[in-house]
Design a protein around this nucleic acid. Structure first.
Lengths: 245, 245
DNA sequence: ACAAAAGTGTTCGGGATACACCCATGC
DNA sequence: GCATGGGTGTATCCCGAACACTTTTGT
């Protein structure tokens, strides 16, 4: 059995995006309270172990804190300001949970896209609570997590413009309007319904199913699924579903 | 005076691209030989100090090893395979130059674009020699530097497609043919001369100068300079010259 | 005069954009 | 029957791609 040594200088933080057919959400944790101080809200993240890769660390940490596993996490940036974990409001927490609370920590940011309703979260380890927060209503987070989160969002939008699409954010069966809402939420602009449909159908991104919505108070929409044949040709490292749009 | 402590677990590596009006080059060092073993070729890189940011570390290390300073380095990826510095052929070198040769090291990759002829290199520290190497003729490098280099090249090409152009690679005054060669070298494909000129001129990326080439054995070309007004609107963190093309 | 790269316009097809009305369902 | 989102076609513009010959210099 390996002795799993914690590396005091390197951590990972995960920015997990979800979509509820309306707006973009981010997965946050509330840290367990320390000595009567209320816990801060933060991105799920922790120090890496010396015998695991960064990718493995991100997956492990996310699972330990939130219960979510089996999703693809993409590394997007390393944050290395020497003072990024030195703010007073974070010190008590570090003293309780870290062997070397004063250590210089650089953190590697990962982001991921998930279908919110397919994952149930379960707080554990030092997470008191796990919750989804609308990206327009992010509270003050621990350490430099607000800027990490903002950077992840910028990156998500860049990848999107780059035609590396996020079907991960939709349920398996979806309507074209839901797909359009996803594009609109991420790109933060409105799209023309007819043009959107024309493009999606012409490029065969999706396949129509013999199924319709039920229980809606209007004309029920046709359901579609992703056509997995189509892939981007650009050198992408990892495995988001990447389609030219 | 600060005590500058070396962090044994975090390093930076720099992939500096240059262009000689023909092809893309990368800046490499040859490590000083250890105990009669010939030095390996490698990217310029070293451990970070505990009181400097990652960006500062990249600039410092590049200067210490190659003499190049004052260029913009963009972070592109963190490499964290637990065994990336554990190969036998690198161990002797590590034992000579590192206090903790067995330490787990994750490295942050930076890339940069420079006008080759404006920088003169000067090897120092553990660099025996500094040289430019054509990207099609990269030798076997130390550690995982071949994959870091490849990843940087992929990233350069992505940024290019993203319309974040690299005028940094050209002299201040250049001909449209040189600009076209740059695009062709980076994108690795041929472009139509007339279409290329039309696009560049229509978008006012460049301004014509009242000057021509001299000493060439053919019709002398008009010289142009970059039009600095034009900038990309996407959220770019850093300061490459980024123009929509 | 000849070699070598500079410079210059037109045509065509496809994709992006703009735009308005009828349809099926639940209440 | 009415409120709600679903679903459909056409005209225009702009951009990218394809394509060949004349011009200017140095030798």
């Amino acid at each position: 059995m390996k002795n799993r040594v914690i590396n005091p200088n390197v951590s990972v933080d995960c920015v997990v995006f979800g979509f509820d057919t309306q707006s973009l959400k981010v997965l946050l944790i509330e840290q367990k309270a320390v000595e009567g101080m209320s816990g801060h809200q933060a991105l799920p993240g922790d120090l890496v172990l010396n015998d695991e890769s960064l990718d493995d660390a991100a997956a492990r940490v996310l699972k330990e804190l939130t219960g979510i596993e089996g999703i693809f996490l993409r590394q997007f940036h390393a944050f290395g300001d020497p003072n990024r974990v030195k703010q007073v409001q974070d010190l008590d927490w570090l003293k309780s949970y870290r062997d070397q609370p004063e250590a210089r920590v650089i953190t590697i940011g990962y982001y991921a896209l998930v279908k919110m309703d397919e994952f149930q979260t379960e707080a554990s380890s030092f997470a008191e609570r796990v919750f989804w927060q609308d990206i327009h209503e992010i509270p003050e987070l621990a350490f430099d997590h607000n800027s990490i989160m903002q950077r992840a969002l910028d990156r998500l939008r860049e990848e999107f413009e780059n035609r590396q699409v996020g079907f991960e954010l939709l349920p398996e069966k979806f309507t074209l309007s839901q797909l359009q809402s996803l594009y609109e939420a991420i790109e933060d602009r409105e799209l023309d319904k007819r043009n959107f449909r024309k493009k999606v159908l012409k490029e065969k991104l999706v396949t129509a199913l013999d199924e319709k919505q039920t229980g809606v108070v209007h004309k029920p929409a046709r359901l579609y699924k992703l056509n997995l044949e189509v892939r981007s040709k650009s050198p992408v490292h990892g495995s988001f579903v990447t389609v030219k749009f």
